[in-house]
Design a protein around this nucleic acid. Structure first.
Lengths: 388, 388
DNA sequence: TTATTTGATTAAATGATTTAATCAAATACC
DNA sequence: GGTATTTGATTAAATCATTTAATCAAATAA
């Protein structure tokens, strides 16, 4: 029911019943409990010029609770508090400190979140969860980071440490994967829950979303478009293979190829009509387009979402889309690809997305099993004081 | 419960309970109903040298019912009857007739299935469903074929026509996709339900299985590895694009490249040590290996299953695996790729697989909703006469 | 022989959901 | 303008799957 409301906005009890396969009577009972628990709100009536009683719209109460979010990178920490619909309420950026241990970093995260709440008059009791995103891969079972491409050199039990410090549920995810979820949940673009997300810069990060959920594959390695091979490419990748797309078509590779100092300067050169740079960019985007076409053929996504200011530049996006249309021999393919609507200055949005999902029982799943309200960890405390 | 039994063979009531999240008491009740209904059988006790009562093993009754299967191709019809575990009981091949309408073909399918049952002393009352596979794409909602690459030039309501003729549930699927399911369900290789299936010959057909189910993608086009692009390839594909893998690396393309008359002759030349042919084959398999590597990076499958006698030849399979291992820089890749264990002379196995799945409620799904035995179409008639 | 262990079964209790009736609140019709 | 009709929400009794707790069954261990 929460899942349906999340996806399809305010709905009447009758419509909810139809969608989740229960009777209106059952939904009346369920909504009553959840309204009491503060999970839902009634949002007035839907006016239709038609006989009969009007629908009373029910929706998730996005404003009553909030989540914490943190992004831990080598360049520093970003923490934030967000509403359950992803709207940021407060955020802060903290620089990295020399020689700081993981434990100290997480302690700073906890302190920062509490300070943010205090300074924005948000009651900590309404903090329903925290999502942390990191650069490397994570073990979702144990809530630990695995190898982290330079930040931490050993597994860190992030979830356990932060839950001890804050006393609310904490979840952990890779930053790109979490961002892809944020795009799904907060991005405002409807779809069928199948999306390839491509974070362009400084490397080529990607995440695959199937059935509204992060797809991990059989060995936690699916969706790695940056590590598909480009024939003829002899560059050795950090992943150990030779010829990965990332070594040839990442912003870093483009910077190296053009000899310019930054992606911003490349954009400048493009705008100035620099033919040499345009050709280099075109070649690079050609590799990218080919890889994206491969992915489209194999995954048939509803969206291919690009994330990163360089690709978001109209000139670049145009070149990429042109190449893709040419490859697919189908102008409609362009409709599949678009740039993310997320604020690129908010790296914590992924954290907010996973925290919200955790609060709403990881909504998109059709997990068999628990449907008893009082056995749900995040709900139990809220339902404890209720009579019925 | 049926799903768990299907996947994990005979189990005790207690173990079933643990897996489906119910109590042994509930499982006792459920198994009793299903034993009465003839869906399950008790398979003796498991002997463990341990104190306590022995487990009474319960399993699906694969022998009590059977399914019909049909494969409709331009070269003719194949019909068969199979046990619920995929073991063929009877089969027949029928040549195509000139000028035969789709309706006449389906009438022949129905007649053939009834004849097979009659001649093998199988009671039609125990025929619990029929699965039909065709070469082109199908509309699973309406049970119609769509365009069919030459066989039929307009949609044919296969399901409606055959259900009218036979009076049992009929389901329809593309042949490659159904074959991939047969591989999962009858192939005897455990896995986690994620598999890329590749039918090599005469074209390059493929199907993607995720979470134990056929993945269709957002537009019914996922898993099309044969239509990924090979850079530099200028051949126009039947799909309308230029440069598809299939135009360059299918058996048909290989036959054309070698100038030999058939894949069998190519195998012969390879065995004879023909260097020119070996190089051509190697180039072709290189394209295939690259595409497979792409798919592995994007999908992270548990298995890549090859189907087709040409690829099954030790020399060819060896060459392909070598190329793949070289590309991935990881000897483990060899463990992922394997040839199908299915009988290649039985094109109807896919039909049997989808019929069995339909009978067992499309087992692998975690579909929300109906768990009431008496509302299940395939079970209702069997439960009708039962007391409790 | 008895105690213990493990699995299966049973009966009463529970509780979510449905059924069927009713209430609520609008438009449509005469 | 009053009444009928329609549509959605609610309620109470009934239902039915499931759990709980006790018991039975059948083995090994002491």
């Amino acid at each position: 029911m929460l899942r349906v409301l999340r996806k399809s906005g305010p709905l009447s009890r009758k419509d909810i019943a139809a969608r989740i396969g229960l009777t209106p009577a059952a939904v009346t009972i369920l909504t009553a409990k959840m309204l009491d628990a503060g999970l839902l709100v009634e949002r007035g009536e839907e006016v239709e010029n038609r006989a009969g009683r009007r629908k009373i719209l029910v929706d998730l109460d996005y404003s009553r609770s909030f989540v914490g979010a943190a992004s831990i990178e080598t360049e520093g920490l970003t923490t934030a508090l967000c509403r359950l619909d992803g709207v940021p309420l407060a955020s802060s950026r903290l620089p990295p400190l020399d020689g700081e241990t993981p434990e100290q970093i997480l302690a700073r995260v906890a302190t920062s979140l509490l300070q943010l709440a205090a300074s924005h008059n948000l009651a900590v009791a309404q903090l329903v969860g925290v999502g942390v995103v990191v650069v490397g891969s994570v073990d979702r079972q144990t809530g630990r980071t695995l190898h982290d491409y330079g930040l931490w050199d050993q597994p860190v039990p992030v979830v356990a440490l932060l839950e001890a410090a804050l006393g609310v549920p904490v979840c952990l995810e890779n930053n790109v994967r979490a961002l892809a979820l944020a795009e799904m949940d907060f991005g405002g673009n409807p779809g069928d829950g199948r999306q390839l997300f491509l974070k362009y810069g400084p490397g080529i990060g990607s995440a695959l979303i199937l059935e509204h959920r992060i797809d991990t594959g059989s060995h936690d390695r699916s969706g790695e478009i940056g590590h598909t091979l480009v024939p003829g490419n002899k560059l050795v990748c950090r992943c150990g293979r030779t010829g990965c797309l990332e070594t040839l078509a990442s912003p870093a590779a483009l910077v190296a190829a053009t000899g310019l100092a930054s992606p911003a300067l490349i954009l400048q050169a493009l705008a100035d009509g620099d033919a040499r740079v345009k050709e280099l960019v075109q070649t690079t985007l050609g590799h990218l387009a080919l890889a994206i076409d491969h992915a489209i053929q194999l995954l048939d996504p509803y969206w291919v979402v690009l994330y990163g200011s360089f690709l978001n530049h109209p000139l670049v996006l145009g070149l990429l889309v042109d190449q893709l249309v040419e490859l697919t021999a189908n102008p409609q393919a362009a409709a599949v690809i678009r740039h993310s609507a997320l604020d690129e200055a908010a790296p914590y949005l992924g954290g907010a997305a996973i925290a919200v999902r955790a609060f709403f029982l990881d909504l998109p799943a059709d997990q068999p099993g628990n449907s008893r309200l009082d056995e749900i960890p995040t709900l139990a405390p809220r339902l404890a004081g209720i009579e019925s």
